[in-house]
Every structure is written in structure tokens, then in C-alpha cells.
Design a protein around this nucleic acid. Structure first.
Length: 226
DNA sequence: GCCCAGGTGGGTA
DNA sequence: TACCCACATGGG
């Protein structure tokens, strides 16, 4: 019984960095808003925008939908792409109001594929943002693939060139049990690893995955994994 | 001043 | 399918 290398990778990251406890937010709506605000943006900038919304006490679908586009854009300015993100957040809020009477728990409480399609139908919400909301706000086992995930798999030599978002997501989901806790930790650990090892130090210096990477393959240590 | 950061959508060939 | 581009801020 050989374990999948994506299971091994998860265990290695967990041992190296410990549980990350994502998503850093107070409630499910804040998670959803944060997922939109952090698109192609450093989390610190998105967090400033979340804080501005919190200080205005507008972190509910109803109050956020009640803001003018200009007012909302102004509040989330620090997150970048603020006009587009403001429009997306308003549509998301209206969808929660229109389909679930403003009750986010109710909005999120439906089969994963159906909810994923619903979210993907909102302009400005693509697969990564949809999966982040599904996973961290809804507790659905939907794996999040981001730039760090792709980069890590590429460096490990585990990625087919040109693999699509859904192909990468499917690969993780086929290798792991459908456990939102595991998926949430895994994605957070990949981000943690990227910020710890791949940017802040010279290439591969001190990397905890060195033996799985090019050097490890040369030594044949992956022979028993699929 | 330059580069990048937990993407997305629209256009062209 | 494969690129290209706009969208925009703040920190290193």
C-alpha cells in the first residue's frame, strides 16, 4: 500500500510548519469578502480593506449591499482593483439577499457542485475565489489552487506543463479524503511554505522539501510513491 | 523607480 | 488552446 505523494507532501509541510488555522477572519461573510479582496493582492493590503469595512460596521450582506458603489470602492481602496472588487462584492451580497434572505449559512448550505456553479456565475469570482469561499466560509471540501500551489508542483516536477486549474484541483481531491479541515490546512501550508522558503531566502536554502525536489529525485528517494 | 502580491474577464489569432 | 491586456494599491 503506497501512499500518494500529495499525502506525503501534506504530512511533511504539517510537520515542518504546524497547523496554520486558516482562514484568518471572524465569520463566514468576512472570509468571503476577504477572498475577493485578496485577489492578486498582498494579504496585508486586503486586510486593511477588511478592517475599514469592519470599522464601518458593514460586514454583512445587507449593509454592504446598501453602500453606494463609490462608497464601497473607497473603503476597499487599499486592496487594489477596488472598482471591480466593489462591484463583485455587491453582486455577491445581493445574491445572498435574493436567494437566502441574507442568511449566508443558508446560502452556503447546498451541494458543493451547485454552490460552486452559483459562485462562478458571479462576475469577478473565478475558480480560486469560489473554492476559497466554499472551503473556508462554507466548510465544503473544495481544494484551493493558487499561484503558490502551481509553482510548488512545478518545482517538485510533479506538474504536467499547461495543467489547468481544475486538473490540479482534481489531482489533490483524488489523492486526499474529502475533508475540509485537511484541504484548508494544506492550502494554508503551501502558502506558508512559499513565504517562508521560496522568496525570503536564496533559492532552496533551508527548504524543508529539498529531498523531494530535484535533488531528492536524483537520489531516488521517491521510488515508493505514486 | 521597479517589482510583486493567495485572480479575473475579455479580446485576438 | 494560447497568449495578451486591463484592472490598482502598498510594501520591499
Amino acid at each position: 500500500m503506497t501512499r500518494h505523494r500529495l499525502q506525503l507532501l501534506y504530512e511533511r509541510l504539517l510537520v515542518a510548519y504546524g497547523p496554520q488555522g486558516w482562514w484568518p477572519a471572524d465569520d463566514a461573510f468576512e472570509v468571503s469578502v476577504g477572498a475577493v479582496l485578496t485577489q492578486r493582492t498582498a494579504w496585508t493590503n486586503a486586510a486593511m480593506a477588511v478592517q475599514a469595512l469592519r470599522e464601518e460596521d458593514v460586514l454583512t450582506p445587507a449593509s454592504l449591499a446598501g453602500l453606494s458603489d463609490g462608497r464601497l470602492a473607497s473603503l476597499i481602496r487599499s486592496s487594489g482593483f477596488f472598482r471591480a472588487k466593489a462591484a463583485t462584492l455587491k453582486v455577491l451580497s445581493y445574491r445572498i439577499l435574493d436567494t437566502a434572505e441574507g442568511d449566508l449559512s443558508l446560502y452556503l448550505n447546498r451541494p458543493l457542485p451547485e454552490l460552486r456553479d452559483e459562485l462562478l456565475g458571479i462576475r469577478g469570482i473565478g475558480p480560486e475565489t469560489a473554492d476559497a469561499i466554499l472551503l473556508y466560509a462554507g466548510g465544503h471540501p473544495s481544494f484551493v489552487v493558487d499561484a503558490y500551489t502551481r509553482r510548488l508542483l512545478e518545482r517538485l516536477g510533479w506538474l504536467d506543463h499547461g495543467a489547468s486549474y481544475d486538473e490540479i484541483r482534481d489531482r489533490f481531491m483524488a489523492a486526499l479524503p474529502p475533508d475540509a479541515g485537511v484541504y484548508g490546512e494544506y492550502h494554508a501550508l503551501i502558502v506558508r511554505h512559499a513565504k517562508t522558503s521560496c522568496r525570503t531566502k536564496p533559492a532552496c536554502d533551508g527548504c524543508v522539501l529539498l529531498d523531494l525536489c530535484a535533488e531528492g529525485r536524483r537520489l531516488g528517494t521517491l521510488g515508493s510513491y505514486t
